[in-house]
Amino acid sequence: MKRKDFSNLEITVQDKKDTIFEHEQYVAGIAPNLRGIHATMYFQIPLETKISTNSFSKANVAPENEIATFLAESLNFIQKGINSNTKIDKIVSELSFETKIGKNHFDEIAKMRAVRMLWSKLIKQFNPKNQSSFALDINATIETSFDAFQAIFGGCQCVISGDKKHLFFQEETRILKTIDPWAGSTYVEKMTEEIATKAWLLFEK
């Protein structure tokens, strides 16, 4: 057969997503507030690694329950602080989300994205002066090296692990070059929305 002429072939680009979620702009957009981290995360504040000799096994808690419990405990802590006349920014700086990372890869990513959204919503009502009070620090304890993968995708500040093998993800996969890399994914955004909605309902109860 004669060779085809491909010189006029061009790609077709479209700028529409299949589905847009209401929260997308907030999760990925002005993220420094709502995702609760610096936009320059991992550049100015490198991902921290801690070695822990404590072994753990992940309790079977649904992500929404874990978040709701965290929000309730945080609120309790904040109210106590306010009652003793401590400033909101000072109180908040003492709080962080200590989480154990489970095996369901995308559930864990969505969990961390959801907890950041809900944290900022919770903190907003106390009118903090400091922008970074909207920021939630997440410390992720992992059971096996591979769990660090979902912890980093979710945007944790610190990985706590029994050994250093998980450094592979930081050093070789280039996944820290852009923030919230799964943002926009219909699958991940839907899961984030579901977990956030359920967790807030549970928390309000």
Binding site: W182, S185, V188
Partner: peptide
């Protein structure tokens, strides 16, 4: 399908 619509 998971990667679909992921900005990056």
């Amino acid at each position: 399908h998971i990667a679909t619509d992921t900005y990056y």
